[in-house]
Amino acid sequence: MSAAATGVGPAFWLLAVGIIGGALGVVLLRNMVQSALCLGLVLLLVGGIYLNLHADLLAGFQVLLYVGAVVTLVLIAIMLIHNLAARYVVQTNQRWGLGAVAAVASGALLVWAINDTRWPVTLRPVDYSEQLRQFCLALLDKYILPFEVAAVVLLVALLGAIVFAQQTERSE
């Protein structure tokens, strides 16, 4: 499958190689700090994929929310948990072989299904300002309820995180 046939540029392939390499680093590296930094790289490059798909607003959200917030949270958790960052701790359970077989099998199924399906693609030109306007209109029109519910969920989840993580007096 060459770049000329599929119409995606070399930027996509560079991003794809980076994403897959970084993702392998996330799941295979033994040092959790390096693993978390690989996660940050993968999330940043996924933002690049969004730019490649002309979803620049989502790329901004990706960088702000994932790379800015989630990776920071993960790094702070690793810092707080003693000897998680130790270099030579075994990080896989005994069933990793079974997990690899399951992952490869589901991957083969997905690739077969993707190649077997004829996707109903409509190619249309990109109009950035119009696209942003329609995104906002859709968010405030048809998807206003999910939007509000997501806001409430985020508030409740962050309050719950504070409740879980705070030091409590142990009442026996």
């Binding site: 794809a16 993968v42 798909l53 992952a103």
Partner: peptide, 29 residues
């Protein structure tokens, strides 16, 4: 139809790597 396929394939590969990580990692982080 081939225009959307590279993205789906990348997503499938990323999904499987993540799936392997969920299955094989020992610590919750």
């Amino acid at each position: 139809s081939a225009a959307v396929q590279p993205y789906l394939l990348l997503s499938a590969v990323l999904f499987c790597i993540g799936l392997y990580g969920v299955f094989s990692r020992l610590n919750a982080v």
